[in-house]
Amino acid sequence: MNKTLTLSQAVKLYTGSSIGRLTVKFTGLLFAQTCLTTLIFAVIGWAEGKTDRISDFVSLIFLVSLMLAHMFLLGGHLFPRSVPGGKFFRSTKEGFAGYQKMRTGVLLVSILILVLSFGGMYLLNMAVPIGTNAAAYVILLIVSLYMISFLNFLQMLPNEGLANILRITALTLTGIFSAGLFTVQRVEWWHWLAGAVALLLVPLSHLILLRHYRKYFWNT
């Protein structure tokens, strides 16, 4: 028997759960929470007659929730040696190769969550008139991709306290400036360019992060 692990098997080895299950769990949570918020704001908005600003709030909450979900997802699957299970994982046949596959699997989950959530939001928008246009979603998607890379790079900071401050700052800034994103009416060419860069940055940041982790954290 000389089998090597697939991404999903690596995730199962470490978490007992599969890529599919994790995706469903997180997307489900995210979507449920967003629907609830939408409903609340929709009711408030309709009650006050201000239907045009509902989407701003909903999208804002959605974006912040997405960021939080990613922080928990990416940050919650680190498995350092000092945590129970750490030594077992490091003694397995594939060792770091298996770890790498697990982290990649988790990254895949985060991308899937992104895609599914935005898809879901778009459908929600069609079902419940909350006034956001499609362009804003594209922008939000691109921003979210940058956020994943940003979180990846933050993990390499030696000072955990500083990293946390930056995470909270990013959350706050996103909250403040996202309002401006919603007013975008059309996706410009440079938006697409930024999007392409964002897409490339995700696997790049992931690989750099893993190399860094192997060098400084895995076996030390």
Binding site: M1, A10, L13, T92
Partner: peptide, 13 residues
């Protein structure tokens, strides 16, 4: 059960 599943994935024997 989880131990058995993970051991099976972590090793060939």
């Amino acid at each position: 059960k989880t131990i058995a599943d993970s051991m099976e994935l972590g090793f060939d024997n």
